[in-house]
């Protein structure tokens, strides 16, 4: 069997409220997809889209109201403990480690829970410490670690029993930019070096681009997009936002503001760029990188800047914008 996950019409409805005033909420609606062994999949969507509910069903801690699923050949909600032996789960906002102790002590207990011998735990911790560049963190009390360092230890804990499939629920939440970058690189390395299938939920568009080979976008409980990341990059992530802050003189009677407007108009006159000036006085350029190289746009801005550049950033479009784009475009070919 080559599929790690097969979900077919998976649905989950929650019923809330007192008996006479019961309301139902469809958290997940007829979701169907497969994940191949060794694949890196991003399962993304805004808050409340049904990502965590889907993970709960696929890991066996929530029964669906309809549909079926096989994870590593097992029905998750009826074979939960057997499945637990073969999957790793990391929740970004819940810890598996004991804060007062060094991670190594937690690893020994977790290893025992998963039936590993002490020798195997030692060897495995050494191996993961190297892959995740975290060996030096394993002997410090967890409470003294930064969030990024703690997440590397959490990842070690989740991978300790050699799971074939790793579920990560919003693992980069709360991490700073550098921490996110390091964590994404480590996930790719885990997949490449150990062959672990990665199922990642996130509402951060950058997580998809840097970690996944394929992305499924969910909104209001339904899959609205399922395609390789290369296609997604071409279809939906081609537009990057360049935001430039200038050191303008606030007492020049609006001359700098006018110069900024003129610069925006001049740049937008070319193809693939839409310019706006924000209320804070920053020049925002939405650049379609398929039509115009981003470096060229930045060069133009720097050359024609009406004042010294105080700050410059290039960011992915927010998820809401990506979802809006999906609804506006014709449905892409599924992977």
């Amino acid at each position: 069997m080559t599929e790690a996950i097969v979900a077919d019409g998976l649905s989950r409805t929650f019923v809330t409220g007192p008996r006479r005033r019961r309301t139902t909420h469809d958290a997940v609606r007829k979701v169907s997809f497969t994940v191949e062994r060794g694949e890196r999949l991003a399962f993304i969507g805004p808050n409340g889209a049904g990502k965590s509910t889907s993970i709960k069903m696929l890991t066996g801690i929530l029964h669906p109201t309809d549909g079926s699923a096989l994870v590593l050949g097992l029905e998750p909600w009826t074979r939960r403990r057997q499945l637990a032996q073969q999957i790793g789960v990391l929740f970004g906002q819940r810890s598996q480690l004991w804060t007062e102790l060094a991670p190594r002590a937690s690893f020994r207990l977790l290893g025992s829970i998963f039936g590993l011998s002490d020798e195997r735990v030692t060897a495995r911790v050494g191996e993961l410490g190297q892959v995740l560049e975290a060996s030096e963190l394993f002997d410090q009390p967890v409470r003294t670690l930064s969030l990024g360092q703690r997440m590397r230890c959490e990842l070690t804990a989740a991978m300790l029993h050699e799971p074939e499939l790793l579920f990560l629920d919003e693992p980069t939440i709360g991490l700073d930019l550098l921490g996110k970058e390091v964590f994404r690189t480590l996930l790719v390395r885990l997949n490449a070096d150990l062959g672990t299938t990665v199922f990642l939920t996130s509402h951060d568009v950058a997580d998809i681009e840097h970690v996944a080979e394929r992305a499924i976008v969910v909104n209001h409980g339904s899959i609205i997009y399922d395609a390789p990341v290369t296609a997604m990059r071409r279809d939906l992530l081609a537009v990057k936002r360049v935001e430039v802050h200038f050191a303008l003189d606030p007492l020049d009677g609006g001359a700098s503001g006018s110069a900024l407007d003129a610069l925006g108009t001049s740049i937008s006159s070319g193809v693939g760029v839409k310019a706006t000036v924000s209320e804070s006085g920053a020049l925002q350029l939405d650049v379609d990188t398929l039509l115009r190289p981003i470096g060229e746009v930045i060069d133009t801005v720097l050359r024609a800047a009406p004042a010294p550049v105080a700050d410059l950033s290039v960011v992915d479009p927010p998820l809401e914008q990506v979802i809006g784009e999906i609804y506006r475009r014709p449905a892409p070919e599924s992977a």
Binding site: G38, G115, R120, V188, N191, A192, L194, G195, E213
Partner: peptide, 24 residues
């Protein structure tokens, strides 16, 4: 998907065999 996947250095490596097989 192929069992061979590029690693972080851009090279290709096969998934490492498990040294302690799961209990039969």
């Amino acid at each position: 998907m192929s069992d061979l996947a590029p690693n972080s250095q851009g090279t290709v490596s096969a998934p490492r065999p498990r040294s302690e097989p799961r209990p039969r």
